[in-house]
Design a protein around this nucleic acid. Structure first.
Length: 379
DNA sequence: TAGCTATGTGCGGCTTTGGT
DNA sequence: ACCAAAGCCGCACATAGCTA
């Protein structure tokens, strides 16, 4: 016989993400090199679309009140265009619904705020992912960039006519023939050296006077490298000491965060551990042994000191960090020590791989992937 | 061989949680 | 208002085994 009662929400483990609070740490480290990109703002074509929308706002005198509706409609228009023109080459948010619309029996697609490509197009589409980087990087207020975007618009009279319609209709429905949408894709590619320069100036900046870009120009092999390989290469070759210093610190940050993360996820794989099991565990021991020194990382000494001691001390430290993080979130800790040893109460995200090599594998990206992704699309 | 069904897998998208 | 990440879900697709 089982007696089931509802869980008291106050005592449930509420936070299921980021049990050690590392997200803030790695992002903070990444921002020391790449200040404005995010991990999801990695499609140049999405930047083309937000750039075009921004230029249209000025050109057609669209008010702040009307702009979001206009934006969503333009995003829809461009979704059909890119689906038609670049089928199979790229994915984008909203591709499923766009495909369904394009494949139905009608000869036209309907563009309107009520025909959203996503359950919440504003949140999950280009607006949500790109507004912050686009504005922060200064593309929104770059006169030359706006000029370039308007030229692209003028170059495509059909698009210009549809866009002017959208600007007047304020998000109410317009119909576009499916046979026409492919022709609307011209602004989705780079049209001039001027435009490429604008993107390079804004998307590929760093905190070190563009030294990262200079390095990649000098050493194209960097593009295809793995995370640590890339860091080591630049640290070794960089003439600018600040760039080398920042990357060295990012490297040491990941050398600490990743093993700690893996150890915590590994602990989650079993519901209880005796002190003896923890003390003699080969994986915890091997992963923790890669400690290189936290003084040259972006981490606090409390986090930095967790590695490089005996297993039990490392695990006690991690449990304490989780407890502190959970206390701040007003939720229960995921594991706790009792008389018998360590007791695990929350298994979400449990993960173990015997192949993990702390010297080669990494868990966090520091926005470096995004930067290189965009670099590739600009070359 | 064609057709059916079960099963596995990868991916896009949705939701939730925790952040700035 | 915006961003990161994880679990989950449904869908598309591949594969395998079975049957007629």
């Amino acid at each position: 016989m089982y007696f089931l009662t509802l869980q008291d929400p106050n005592y449930m483990v509420k936070g299921s993400r980021d049990p050690l609070g590392f997200q803030v740490a790695w992002q903070g480290a990444g921002r020391h090199l790449i200040p404005e990109l995010s991990t999801v703002s990695s499609s140049l074509r999405d930047f083309h679309i937000i750039g075009l929308a921004n230029a249209c706002k000025g050109e057609f005198d669209i008010t702040d009140r009307d702009y979001p509706a206009f934006f969503l409609c333009l995003e829809q228009l461009m979704a059909y265009a890119r689906l038609q023109k670049f089928a199979g080459e790229e994915g984008f948010n909203g591709i499923d619904r766009a495909r369904k619309m394009m494949d139905d029996s009608r000869d036209h697609v309907e563009i309107s705020v009520s025909n959203q490509l996503l359950s919440n197009q504003r949140s999950y589409g280009i607006w949500g992912k790109y507004s912050r980087p686009f504005n922060d990087m200064g593309l929104a207020n770059d006169a030359r960039f706006q000029q370039v975007q308007l030229q692209k618009l003028k170059y495509n009279p059909l698009l210009e006519q549809l866009v002017s319609q959208l600007a007047k209709k304020r998000g109410t429905s317009i119909k576009v023939k499916k046979s026409d949408v492919g022709a609307l894709a011209t602004p989705l590619s780079i049209s001039s050296a001027d435009e490429r320069d604008c993107y390079i100036d804004h998307l590929l900046t760093d905190t070190c006077h563009g030294q990262l870009l200079d390095m990649v120009k000098s050493f194209p092999e960097l593009v295809e490298m793995e995370f640590y390989e890339r860091l080591d290469f630049i640290i070794d070759k960089a003439i600018d000491r600040k760039l080398a210093q920042v990357l060295f610190r990012i490297k040491n940050t990941e050398r600490i965060l990743s093993p700690l993360n893996r150890i915590f996820r590994y602990l989650q794989c079993k519901s209880s551990w005796t002190d003896g099991e923890l003390a003699s565990d080969e994986f915890i021991g091997a992963w923790a042994a890669t400690f290189e020194g936290h003084e040259n990382s972006y981490l606090s000494p409390e986090i930095g000191r967790l590695l490089g001691r005996d297993n039990l001390e490392t695990v006690r430290g991690l449990v304490l960090v989780n407890e502190t993080v959970c206390a701040r979130r007003r939720s229960e800790p995921w594991m706790r020590f009792n008389a018998a040893g360590l007791e695990v109460n929350h298994f979400e995200g449990a993960f173990f791989s015997s192949d993990y090599d702390p010297m080669r594998n990494h868990d966090y990206t520091y926005f470096i992937n995004t930067w290189f992704n965009l670099f590739k699309q600009l070359n």
